[in-house]
Amino acid sequence: MPRTRIAALGHHQPDHVLTNHDLAGMVETSDEWIRQRTGIVTRRVAREETVTDLAAAAAGKALAASGLDPADIGLVTVATCSAQDRCPSIAAQVAGRLGVPGAVAFDLNNGCAGFTTALATADHSLRAGAARHALVVGAEKMSDVTDWTDRSTCVLLGDGAGAAVVSAEEGGDAGRDGIGPVVWGSDPTRGDAVRLKGAWRPRFAQEGQTVFRWATTELAPLIERACEKAGVAPGDLGGIVTHQANLRIIESLVRRLSVDGVVVARDVVDSGNTSAASVPLALSKLVERRELEPGAPVLLFSFGGGLSWAGQVVTCP
């Protein structure tokens, strides 16, 4: 069976920056209130760009960085929960824009856990021989589903996209797969804790305290299990990239894992919560800034609506 690896990454964010001070002029809030509760300072908001625009921009950068031809791509999947288009899929539109001919293309909606779920799905497909190279994208335009009158949620959300080219190869590092075994699941009994409901104009809503308690008390053992399945101790990781939901959640998880000295993504400060885009967006930025060593084991772990989670250890490209 072939091994898989992330061959290249790319990301894209809209130009428009929305600050906490901007939001304080829209709803009853303040920069201090937002920073204390979420750690967020700014977020990007797309004015004209669509989810497809964001996804295609990030995917195009990843494809260019991989050195592959569009014809080499056999699978395109976009993780998103904010797409306005039901059919054709965002993935099919991205494939069309990039000139990818004949690839299987589909969207995957697992809320904020979408990208790592899609990465595992592509990993399994490539290992089974269904394709040799895949484009895996997380893209969200959360501003389309934001209630801009709700101060508890509008301060959280941002727009953006991140993408990875995943490749299968024979042999490779005998000690560790480039994409480790996934740990994933859901707790549908608490599915309404994070939700996007409504036929044509859904709005993001959540039970903040429920999500915070769940994330800070129940996710650390799942992260440890993902590390165990990959054969690496949390303290030996080169980096940790969790869903960028809230800086307080990220800091709590890091404390529970006792991973002093490990590079931890904190892109939520600048980008807000970009749902399924947050993990690939944060990972791509860390790699671009050379804050992660090539070949280092990096934990990816995302969680959210469902309540769902998915995570794996990958080798940094």
Rank of each mutant, 00 (worst) to 15 (best):
S302A: 15
L98Q: 06
T146I: 05
V314Q: 08
A276V: 12
V94D: 06
A55E: 05
A95D: 06
L219M: 14
A199W: 07
H11R: 15
A71M: 00
R176V: 05
R176S: 12
A103N: 10
S284I: 08
A103G: 10
D53L: 07
V27F: 02
V94T: 12
D173F: 01
V211G: 04
A56K: 03
T38E: 07
P317L: 02
M142A: 12
V136Y: 03
N109P: 03
A174C: 01
G114A: 11
E140R: 10
E140C: 08
I179N: 06
E251S: 13
A95H: 05
N20D: 02
S167L: 01
D150P: 03
L196W: 05
V298C: 04
S252H: 13
G60S: 11
V41W: 00
R225D: 15
G191A: 15
G238F: 03
H243Q: 14
S278L: 07
R47C: 02
K229S: 08
T153I: 06
P181T: 13
V268Y: 08
D192T: 14
A265M: 03
D53R: 11
R255L: 09
S167Y: 01
A215T: 14
L68T: 06
K197A: 14
V313W: 02
D192E: 14
Q84E: 15
L219E: 04
A57Q: 14
R225N: 11
S308Y: 03
S143Q: 07
A120C: 02
A118G: 14
D31C: 07
G295E: 09
G99I: 11
S66K: 11
I223F: 00
V78G: 08
A57V: 01
H11N: 09
V264L: 04
S284H: 09
V137I: 15
C227F: 09
S308M: 05
P294K: 10
A276F: 10
V166M: 04
E28C: 01
T315R: 13
